[in-house]
Design a binder for these strands. Structure first.
Lengths: 230, 230
DNA sequence: AGTATTCGGTAGCCATAGCTACCAAAAATG
DNA sequence: CATTTTTGGTAGCTATGGCTACCGAATACT
C-alpha cells in the first residue's frame, strides 16, 4: 500500500536504522493517514489541536509563524522526508506550534500520536529505535532553533545578511550559489522588510562584498563578509 | 556520596520516574563529577568543546548567548534541578550551544556523555527511561524556543513588553507580581536596549495600562494589554 | 500569444529604538 | 556606618530600518 513511498520514508529521521521489510510491517501497524494538499493550502495551522505527527512525502512546504498582525516569519522549508509536529507530539502538548503551508502540491502522511507513543504488540521491538531516532531529531531541531535565534537577535540588517549568506556558503561550499528562496521569503526568514533588505543587499554589492542577479549570489570577499557578521 | 543532592536530583527531568534507591546505584555507575563555581564565573562557554551534560544542584545561573560585539541575549534562568547541554549531547554535537554564567555561587554535576548514551551493564534497565525522559525534555525545550522566537520576531517594543508581561501574568495567575529579573536582564531577554525599554515601560504606565515600582508590576488593564501584543 | 500576477529594485518619508551620558536611589561591600 | 557598585529612570541626538508607492522585468496562466 505504501510501497511507492518507501524510498522517501527510508530517508526520514523517524525510521533511521530500520530495515525496509520491517518498515513495511510497521506501517501497517501505525495506521498512517495519507492526505493530498493543493498549492498554497494550509497543511496545519498554528494553534489548532492535533493528534498526529506529519511526514512530507512529496512536494515542498514552508513552516511559518504568523502573528495577529499578519507578519510572517519563515521557520524552515520542508522537503520530502522531513517531519513536522514531532516536538509537540513528544512534549505532550497537542497544539501545532507553527503553521505549515504547501508551496506546491504536496502529499503528507500523518501518524497518530498514540500509535507512536503506545506500545503495540507488533511495534514493540522497533518502538525503542523510533524513540531514540526522535531524541536525536528533536535535539538537532533545538540546535537549529538556536541558530535561528542567533539570526533574529542580531540588530543590524548587515549582520543578518552576512551570517545568512555565510551559512549558505558553508552549506554549499562554493562562493557562488543559488539562494534557496525568493526575496520575499528571505525577508520573512530574516524577519526584516523586503525593501530594507533589498536596499542593504545593493549597498553590499556597491561596496564590492557580494554580487548578485536574481537568486544567484556570488560572495566576492569572504573574509570581508565574515567581518561584517557583527 | 550524593545523598545530600538526592532531593534535587529527584526533581530533574532526567531522572523522572526513577526510584530514589535506583537513582543512587545509577549515580555510582554514571560517575558524575561535582564542581563548584563562584558568582559571575563561567560554568560553560558557547563554542567550547564538551563531553558532559550539566545539572545545576544549587544556586542560580543564566543561560546566555553572547555575540562578538558583546551583546548578550538571555535565553533562560536556571534553577536547581535544571539541566543544560542536553540537546548538544543527544544531537551528537560536542560544542556548547550557549554560555552558562553563575549568577551566584553554584554547584554543578556533570554527567559524561558516553555514560548516558552507552549501554553500561548496570545502567541498562534505566537507560530506556532516561532516553524517554530526555525526549520529553528536549521537546519541551523546542516549544520554549518557539516561544522565545515569537518574542524576538516582534518588531515593536510595546509588543515584546506586552507579551512578556502577559506571559508572566499567565504563569503567576495574578495581575500583580514580581518580575523574575532585573531591568538589565529583562532587556537582554527581550533583546532590546535598557533605556528604550525603560522609556516604553513608563509610557505604558502613563497611559494607565500598567503600574510598577522596581520589580513589582501591576497590570491595570489586562484586555488593553492583550490588544497591544501586536 | 496575450494577459495577469509575481517578483525585485528604487525612492522618500518618518517613526522607532539604539546609544551615550547623567543622576539619584538602592544595595552590596568592607 | 561609610563608601563603592549596581540599579533604574531620564534626556537628547541620530542612525536604522519600516512602510507605502511605483515600475519594469520575469514568470505563470489560459
Amino acid at each position: 500500500m505504501f510501497a511507492k513511498f518507501l524510498p522517501v520514508l527510508m530517508r526520514t529521521s523517524l525510521f533511521r536504522d530500520i530495515a525496509s521489510d520491517d518498515l513495511n510491517t510497521m506501517l501497517n501497524c501505525l495506521q498512517p493517514k495519507l492526505r493530498k494538499f493543493k498549492k498554497n493550502s494550509y497543511i496545519a495551522t498554528a494553534g489548532d489541536h492535533f493528534e498526529s505527527l506529519g511526514i512530507l512525502l512529496s512536494g515542498q512546504a514552508s513552516l511559518i509563524k504568523e502573528n495577529a498582525a499578519g507578519d510572517r516569519l519563515m521557520m524552515a522549508i520542508l522537503k520530502p522526508g522531513d517531519i513536522f509536529g514531532e516536538s509537540a507530539v513528544f512534549s505532550g502538548n497537542s497544539v501545532w506550534p507553527a503553521t505549515v503551508v504547501a508551496q506546491e502540491a504536496c502529499q503528507v502522511m500523518f501518524l497518530p500520536k498514540q500509535k507512536i507513543l503506545g506500545e503495540c504488540a507488533n511495534l514493540c521491538s522497533w518502538h525503542h529505535t523510533i524513540i531514540e531516532n526522535m531524541l536525536k531529531d528533536v535535539s538537532d531541531k533545538v540546535l537549529r532553533l538556536n541558530q535561528k535565534i542567533e539570526y533574529l537577535s542580531m540588530k543590524s540588517m548587515r549582520g543578518k545578511l552576512s551570517s545568512f549568506l555565510l551559512e549558505q556558503y558553508k552549506m554549499i561550499g562554493q562562493p557562488e550559489f543559488l539562494l534557496p528562496m525568493k526575496r520575499n521569503e528571505m525577508a520573512d526568514f530574516l524577519n526584516v522588510s523586503r525593501p530594507s533588505m533589498s536596499r542593504e543587499l545593493c549597498r553590499m554589492r556597491d561596496e564590492g562584498v557580494i554580487d548578485f542577479d536574481r537568486s544567484s549570489i556570488q560572495i566576492k570577499d569572504v573574509d570581508l563578509l565574515k567581518s561584517m557578521v557583527e
